[in-house]
């Protein structure tokens, strides 16, 4: 299935939870925030959030800034 991941069309083998997606991307969930279809997902809800075909996922982190 295809999703929009950080603005890029990305193909995933099958539907999965946000928690699993982060694990597959090797991203430490403690240092990022995620949006699922433009809504912020609270960290405790990552494992209950299922990503479906056509969904939009944004993964954000802190970087240098003033």
């Amino acid at each position: 299935m295809k999703i929009l991941l950080n603005g890029k069309e990305t193909t995933l083998p099958n539907s999965l939870t946000l928690k699993l997606l982060l694990e597959q991307l090797q991203i430490q969930s403690g240092l990022v925030a995620c949006e699922h279809n433009l809504k912020i997902v609270r960290r405790q809800d990552y494992e209950h959030t299922t990503i479906e075909e056509g969904d939009q996922i944004e993964i954000l982190q802190m970087i240098g800034g003033g």
Partner: peptide, 19 residues
């Protein structure tokens, strides 16, 4: 210290060490 927030660059993961 102030920080900014941006999309994780899925190709270049070096900012992960920023923290």
């Amino acid at each position: 210290v102030t920080v900014a927030l941006r999309r994780v660059d899925l190709k270049d993961r070096s900012p992960q060490s920023f923290y």
